[in-house]
Design a binder for these strands. Structure first.
Lengths: 237, 237
DNA sequence: GGATAAACGGAGCTACTTTCTCCACTTGCA
DNA sequence: TGCAAGTGGAGAAAGTAGCTCCGTTTATCC
């Protein structure tokens, strides 16, 4: 199950086990906030261990990413199955989208795993082969019941999720629930017919997104206040 | 108007003028395909001139970007005004979104200018101050006429455009019109009430988006076949 | 409590990228 | 024909990310 060297040879020393946990915890935090762009150096820093220790435990980033997101990916597959248990087919579909998206929007790392093509490819393939058929069933049922428009197909859903989570990740710090607004609009567009719009949640502050984009692009380069701190440190030429 | 040194001193030599045009044309192509991540070296290559020439004409990337996209940005502002001339307020709004998005989805550079916070900031600020009020009027009219749901505000629109263009740019090579599908769904969600869904255009091939993502992330690193070409050129160690 | 293999930390090496400069050479034009 | 204007592109400068190496520390076993 675990993709590293634990089980094969003699057991890890107690301190090594402790550090391994610290690294996983740190990776969870760092990847969630900064996405998969985060370096193993950053994770080592967050974990309070040296980089060497990280690389000894996880030979490369892919192994660490796989170890971390195995569960989250599995969880999404499970959501698709659970959604089918809902009595109302439309409610089931909506619930699935909301749950899946709330995970991806609050965790930039998870979103990157789902979107990107550089990490954990096989993890995704296996997840996809479980999610697709379940989603397919959800969709067919909602269409059969006359809720979901009949001109959408299974492939549309990952695409719509991608669009919404691209916003969700950008605004996760400043307006963590903003994405729900646009999911609601999309869902109102997916329903076959309705008399009135579904009440929108949240509210988009005018410059909020501009600010969020600025913050997220700044964040992506270096962590927040590093430049100011440096300026204080190195005086003179 | 032009942000570089043309008008101030004595006129440019004829060959310099020619090169300047070549550079602008090359930049238009390269930025459109690869986005603003493209380096001035790439543009020089495409233009068939040396990097030095590019840097002599355009002191830095920001000046070149501003020179190139001034018109495109202006054009979008003009669209918002023209849309108000449509008799039907809903049609006007829809037309504006379609036109604005078709520009951003077919030109990754333009999308980057609109989204990113690293280039042409003042260009965007001036554009925004023209677009926002016009869009505001479009929205109010469509709401007043009972087409557009009343719980959306002006700030929602740039956000929705961002979500859709994020898809549009990724699939611009493999399925250039795919984004229209999701715009249609969103618009069906924005309308106050309707009996049936609007017919969707296009069709999402199952693995198309996965493929597009792979292509675009590969594209982002190096241009397509460069590695293979290099291998042929330099034989031996 | 001492021996020893395991684990640790983090400086620093490698490899790569991007922006931009510099200067020996070429060319348009008066 | 002379020379300022223009050119090309190697390479300097400044980064970044990934990973290794090795002197030091520490858990564990006897």
């Amino acid at each position: 199950m675990t993709t590293d060297v634990v089980s094969s040879m003699r057991p890890l020393r107690a301190d090594a086990v402790r550090n391994r946990e610290k690294i996983l915890a740190a990776a969870a935090t760092v990847f969630a906030n900064r996405g998969l762009d985060a370096t193993l150096d950053e994770i080592a820093l967050e974990a309070g261990v040296g980089v060497g220790t990280v690389y000894r435990r996880f030979p490369d980033k892919d192994v660490l990413v796989a170890a971390l997101f195995e569960n989250s990916i599995d969880e999404i597959a499970t959501l698709a199955l659970s959604a089918y248990e809902s009595e109302n087919s439309w409610e089931g579909l909506v619930w699935f989208m909301r749950e899946a998206l709330s995970r991806q929007c609050s965790n930039k790392g998870l979103r990157d795993v789902v979107i990107s093509t550089t990490y954990a490819e096989q993890l995704k393939d296996s997840a996809k082969s479980r999610i697709s058929p379940a989603l397919q069933k959800l969709i067919e049922r909602a269409q059969h019941d006359g809720y979901l428009r009949t001109d959408v197909v299974e492939a549309d859903f990952p695409i719509m999720e991608m669009m919404i989570s691209s916003l969700g990740c950008v605004t996760s710090q400043l307006a963590p629930d903003l994405w729900r607004r646009y999911l609601t609009i999309m869902l109102d567009g997916l329903v076959v017919s309705r008399d009135a719009p579904t009440q929108l949640e949240g509210f988009p502050n005018g410059d909020l997104v501009a600010e969020a984009l600025r913050a997220s692009s700044r964040h992506a380069r270096r962590s927040e206040g590093s430049k100011e701190l440096l300026r204080d440190d190195c005086q003179g030429s």
